[in-house]
């Protein structure tokens, strides 16, 4: 499973979106698709579990969790920093 697939799986499970996550564009606005702040925190925690990472405070913003692409980008940065 690629990182994008993993993030999609997590959003599907915890994002509580009305839209079909499988068909959502990588740059689609998750908040506009119905994700609440609570759901985005559930997504954040599940992404941390899936990749064994921890989002630092400076990444705890709506921008980080606004799309599949932005989450993947943040994950990539954290994984590279840890390598």
């Amino acid at each position: 499973m690629t990182a994008v697939d993993t993030v999609r799986h997590v959003i599907d499970k915890h994002g509580k979106l009305k839209a079909d996550v499988a068909n959502l564009a990588e740059d689609a606005d998750l908040y506009a698709a119905g994700m609440t702040s609570n759901a985005s925190v559930n997504v954040m925690l599940a992404v941390e579990d899936a990749f064994d990472i921890e989002f630092p405070d400076e990444l705890l913003s709506k921008c980080t969790f606004t799309s599949i692409g932005s989450i993947c980008s943040a994950v990539k940065g954290l994984l590279e920093a840890a390598a």
Binding site: S37, N38, S40, V41, M44, L45, E48, E54, F55, D57, L60, S61, K62, F65
Partner: peptide, 24 residues
Amino acid sequence: RRFLRRQRALFELTVGHDGPTDPS
């Protein structure tokens, strides 16, 4: 630990900034 992480993230995502002296 996870509870504190959740509360911290919720604060940042819903409030973002609450005055000058409370960074955590």
